[in-house]
Design a protein around this nucleic acid. Structure first.
Lengths: 129, 129
DNA sequence: CTGCGTGCAAATGCTTTGCAAAGAC
DNA sequence: GTCTTTGCAAAGCATTTGCACGCAG
């Protein structure tokens, strides 16, 4: 599959969905957003365009432990994510405050890290249990 | 599905697989280990017993971003994991050195975290590229 | 003996892919 | 018009489940 180059109305809608979202979206969420502007858009198209946009470095994947991946517009620099345990939405957290990593077993080489925080988002935190 | 209570030869083999492993195992890895002792053991049995052992708090799941979950024997206390980018194996890291988490957006409540480190394990680090 | 647990195979849920038709340029 | 991208439906994986037989207690 070569990189997609044409600017179709589906691709525009998908870009718009991610651009206007304040948080990483799942393919399903992106589909719903995009479907509001392009009726009949299919999931396959969402997935194909997500991959194309990643190849263009316009999107980057946000892999959540034990959950389907989300995606967000690239270029935000190094940061981590917060998942709400009630609504399952993912939020961006500014920056990375990780201290120098300690005691790796001998012979191991470190190249990167991922940090996830869990809790309640503002919306869920305020609403009744 | 009620908790499984019988000590079948399959369950023994599965427990043995995780007990003797020095690292979290995927269901597939557990199957291969267990199959060496119980011929004809099926994947379904692996999954069913993994869930039963989790319900017994004997196993705990290790969810990896973007990868099928691994499982390890429970009771190790709070710790994190390291994934080798070459062989994809997961290793335990002793303890948690995470500093108090900083600037959460207003109204958010923190309840937990997950940290993953990536790099090369000792074995892969020494072998030719 | 009496069921619970197993193996098998069919069923999921999410993601990917083949193919003919629609549409970008 | 040409060649890419779409929509649909079928195929893939990892995991789950239904069912009849086999084995633990």
């Amino acid at each position: 599959m070569a990189i997609q180059v044409r600017d179709t109305r589906q691709k525009k809608a998908i870009r718009a969905a991610f651009s206007s979202a304040a948080r990483p979206l799942s393919p399903e969420e992106a589909l719903q957003e995009a479907a509001a502007h392009v009726r009949g858009i299919s999931v396959a198209t969402i997935y194909r365009n997500i991959h194309a946009l990643i190849a263009e470095s316009w999107l980057s994947p946000v892999e959540i432990p034990g959950e389907p991946a989300r995606y967000e517009v690239a270029g935000k620099g190094h940061h981590h994510h917060f998942q709400c345990e009630r609504c399952d939405r993912i939020y961006d957290l500014p920056g990375c405050t990780l201290q120098p990593i300690p005691g790796l077993p001998g012979g191991f080489a470190l190249t990167g890290h991922e940090l996830f925080l869990y809790g309640l988002c503002a919306a869920c935190n305020q609403s009744p249990a």
